[in-house]
């Protein structure tokens, strides 16, 4: 069975702990990794890819440590790094063929796969153009294509939608959705709506720890009854923002409509509303580490 297990994974850089004892098991599906900058998402993804060594704990694939599996594990891995580099003088096609060779894909299969993927990410028309002439979004799409080259069982995508315009993001979400049945896809992003649309499960990280893990329904349930809306005068807005965790603010004819995350009713007349994933995120990151949040 396709199963990736993180067993007390810890990574320390000197005295700083970037990832702190994360344990979880991932099976088929899309996992969205959410967390603020510096929360340890990228470090965790690099550990999952076997690029970084853990200080303690291990990542197991099918019961075997990925360190011992070595090339056998890398063979079924597709990775899109956050800082996706490229050789600027390469054309898109040559770049993909180069990576196909590094992924040990035989030449006859590589050619077909490259054509197919360039079409999938809408770069077929630019396949013979040098990458240095590409826009940020095009480079990102090329990055997504290379991650799919070996038809990986495990896909790790670090900020895959960064730099993509809304249309490209929708296209990307559709690609991921169509791929998710057969593999484990782990993606980190700051764009909560991306995760909301495509992730089967969400992993929330803060300060290197796994704060919460569960499906969207479960996550939303966590913040149910903690999200309020009220209308306040423009003069009071600043005071509320300072005193409460305000997730949204909108000017209306009656005043300023605030969306507040709070355990208790923040102000008389505030109405509880259905939470969304952004509310959950804001609710979780302000919490102290509770032990009962993961499922």
């Amino acid at each position: 069975m396709l199963e990736l297990t993180l067993d007390s994974v810890t990574k320390k850089y000197g005295k700083k702990t970037a990832v702190n004892g994360i344990s979880c098991t991932l099976t088929r599906g899309v996992y969205g990794l959410l967390g603020a900058n510096g929360s340890g998402k990228t470090t965790l993804l690099r550990i999952i890819c076997g690029i970084l060594e853990t200080t303690e704990g291990a990542v197991l694939y099918g019961g075997g440590a990925i360190r011992s599996l070595g090339a056998r594990y890398r063979r079924i891995l597709g990775y899109l790094p956050q800082d996706f580099g490229y050789y600027p003088e390469f054309t898109a096609k040559r770049f993909l063929l180069y990576l196909a060779a590094l992924k040990a894909i035989p030449k006859d299969e590589a050619g077909k796969k490259v054509e197919e993927l360039l079409g999938l990410v809408d770069l077929a028309a630019y396949q013979n153009k040098k990458i240095k002439t590409f826009s940020g979004g095009m480079v990102r799409r090329l990055g997504i294509a290379q991650a799919l080259l070996n038809n990986p069982e495990i896909m790790v995508l670090d900020e895959p939608t960064a730099g993509l315009d809304p249309k490209e993001r929708i296209r990307f979400r559709n690609i991921i959705n169509s791929l998710s049945r057969e593999r484990i896809i782990i993606l980190s992003t700051h764009i909560v709506s991306d995760v909301e649309y495509i992730a089967d499960e969400i992993l929330l990280m803060r300060e290197g720890q796994l704060l919460a893990m569960g499906d969207i329904g479960h996550m939303l349930e966590m913040a149910r009854g903690k999200v309020w809306e009220c209308i306040v005068s423009p003069e009071d807005t600043e005071r509320y923002q300072a005193g409460f965790n305000v997730s949204n603010l909108r000017n209306t004819e009656k005043g300023v409509r605030l969306r507040i995350i709070s355990d208790d009713c923040p102000v008389e007349g505030a109405q509880p509303v259905d939470p969304n994933l952004e509310d959950v995120y804001l609710y979780c990151v302000q919490l102290k580490f509770p032990s009962n949040l993961t499922t």
């Binding site: 090339a71 990775y79 580099g85 490229y86 050789y87 992924k103």
Partner: peptide
């Protein structure tokens, strides 16, 4: 060049990884 062009991380995740290259 693997480092200066930011390719090292990606290449390290491939079947033939950076030390082999």
């Amino acid at each position: 060049r693997h480092f200066s062009q930011g390719m090292a991380e990606l290449e390290q995740s491939c079947y033939f990884n950076l030390p082999q290259l």
